[in-house]
Nucleic acid binder design. Structure first.
Lengths: 346, 346
DNA sequence: AACAGTTTTGACTTCGAATGCAATTTATCG
DNA sequence: CGATAAATTGCATTCGAAGTCAAAACTGTT
């Protein structure tokens, strides 16, 4: 970058002058402030000579345009809010979204929710920052969704879909995925009794997965399906297995978990505390396709959500509406990819 | 919040007027814009009557202060940048930082780095957004650090320390932690031969961990220490074990991994592909204390970094310098907590 | 060289909220 | 009650960049 000499000079400027503004640059280059501004606007009409002079001054003073000031006048902050609930904080999703936005020169204001009740407070913050759009991987009430419409702020849900609300979303087909998983189970071997470990009661995703599983199981003629509830965490997977044992007296042929992490808990509990063989005695399946599903310890049969495609879709869907607010709401549904793992018997 | 009636009214306003500004509120309440502004400033001098009138108008119009405009004049954006490199994206850290900042009414602009080379581009972005401070969980060059000083932007490193640079940092004592781990190893049982799986060559943290291990091993009289390199990923843990086997012909008594995830890879490779017993034949230790370390499949002996304390420390260290830029740089070093796991023999 | 046509350029205004200062109201006390 | 101190309020300006529009500088043509 800058050589030592230039660096020293900059330092001096910095200590005397608080912030270098476009005015300073203009003065230094002997041009108008408008000219400086234009040099930073992509398709603007600036002569070569002008651009060169300005850029020289920019270098010398170490000028950086102030995005805050720019945002004020252009009414485009180039920031989007990403709202994720802390519980199901999928790092891949956040980092993938962040990367995709960065590619487009858009910056991510991250909001994590500890409790779903923080939503309204969070939204207050979101409004203040004049973000150009919002990606929500959390549950919003219809009222809250309505405020986005009122304020003309594009909103895209990630893996949350709302049946009766016209709103953008990108999701993985939970029901289809779960059905595929059940198909895999019944094809693989004669599983007769089942248990489902659900996610938290307020998780739509969990409900869909559970519903998909139940539907398909019934269609396949399974009559014996025990349901116990978990919270998506490892420990709740362990506890759920205990509960299954308590309620049934023995283990079912297969345990269907609403997510991978609970499946890990379930497998570990079965193998290490209850001394069952997975998949010999019990098959276990999950949902999500997190990294650890492919680890040899688990080699879990699950549905891999196409995180990259989904993130890309969410980002482009959002940015399309930012550029053109007239676009109608759209729901994009991706299919998950079945991952065969040795956690299924047969 | 607002009843249905009010909501409808808001909607009408919204459709006629682009954004509700403090001027609109002022006019509606029959007061000056300054008054409105003051009603939103904590310790300002406003009479009860005035506040009531203003707030009524605020409610009625659905006004939200514009943080962008505020930031422009106050020169305080109430945003901080959090820079993390994508590779070692520790979700706990990011979400913990985010929560701590949110508590203080500060917002997080998230920057993820795919390659370390993106740093300078990222910093350009950071300058533009006039963030009040930066938390970096990534490597910056001394030149880059210097620009923070020039620009008077407080910077706190998370788990990166620089020996000769005066800069704020919050870290876990990698060397001490690793030494404790080695102590645990030698106390537990007679381990004679060792292998170390390091992290990426450019990771300072990995270097420190390796150094700590080597030092303590030498002090304990270990002569046979093989070093192979990994990249912090699960697969690299697997590969590293193969490499150890190739280079030695057999397995050492203990494998010391620069992080937990590689330790998982190593354990799985040993158990499921090479048919070694862990810890019977080989002990494995990691570093970090991620969630999965406590899972029964691994029950890994490791050093748990006190993420919550560290995040809190980083946040308060940063915000202290934002409020008082004169504070001198400070390095805070936390001790990790040894986690005993059954991945160690004895 | 003079003219119309095209680029470039600069003066001025704008975005929305915060603040110093002066004007005004209210409270306090002899 | 009047005078003075104290609290409240409004006016005008400010932050930094971008856009509007008209003036100025080029271009090419005859």
């Amino acid at each position: 970058m800058a050589k030592a000499g230039a660096s020293t000079r900059k330092e001096n400027f910095a200590s005397t002058k608080r912030h270098v503004t476009s005015y300073d640059v203009a003065q230094h280059a002997g041009v108008s402030q408008s000219a400086v501004s234009r040099c930073f606007k992509p398709g603007a009409s600036v002569s070569k000579k002008m651009r060169a002079r300005v850029m020289a001054a920019v270098e010398e003073l170490g000028y950086t345009p102030n995005a805050i000031a720019r945002g004020l006048i252009t009414r485009r902050s180039n920031m989007v809010a990403v709202i994720v609930s802390n519980l199901n904080f999928y790092p891949e999703v956040v980092s993938e979204l962040s990367a995709r936005f960065t590619e487009r020169g858009v910056h991510v204001l991250l909001f994590t929710l500890d409790h779903e009740s923080d939503v309204s407070r969070t939204l207050q913050q979101v409004w203040q920052y004049q973000v150009d759009g919002v990606i929500a991987a959390a549950h919003l009430s219809p009222d809250e969704i309505a405020t986005f419409v009122e304020r003309d702020i594009p909103l895209v849900f990630y893996n949350r879909s709302y049946e009766d609300v016209q709103v953008c979303s990108v999701s993985c087909d939970q029901i289809e995925g779960e059905r595929a998983l059940i198909n895999r189970l019944v094809e693989a071997s004669r599983h007769r009794s089942f248990a489902i470990i659900t996610g938290p009661a307020d998780s739509v995703v969990s409900m869909q997965r559970t519903r998909g599983a139940l539907e398909r199981l019934r269609e396949c003629g399974a009559t014996e399906v025990l349901q116990v509830s978990g919270d998506y965490g490892y420990r709740s997977g362990c506890r759920a297995v205990q509960e299954i044992l308590d309620r049934r007296g023995d283990m079912p042929d297969a345990i269907i978990c609403a997510n991978d992490v609970m499946a890990f808990g379930a497998m570990d509990e079965l193998r290490y505390r209850l001394d069952y063989d997975v998949p010999g005695d019990v098959s276990v399946v999950g949902f999500d396709g997190v990294r650890a599903a492919a680890w040899a310890s688990f080699d879990l049969a699950t549905v891999v959500q196409p995180v990259e495609s989904m993130a890309e879709a969410a980002v482009s869907m959002l940015m399309d509406r930012v550029d053109n607010p007239e676009l109608p709401p759209e729901k994009r549904l991706f299919s998950g990819v079945l991952r065969n793992g040795s956690s299924i018997r047969g």
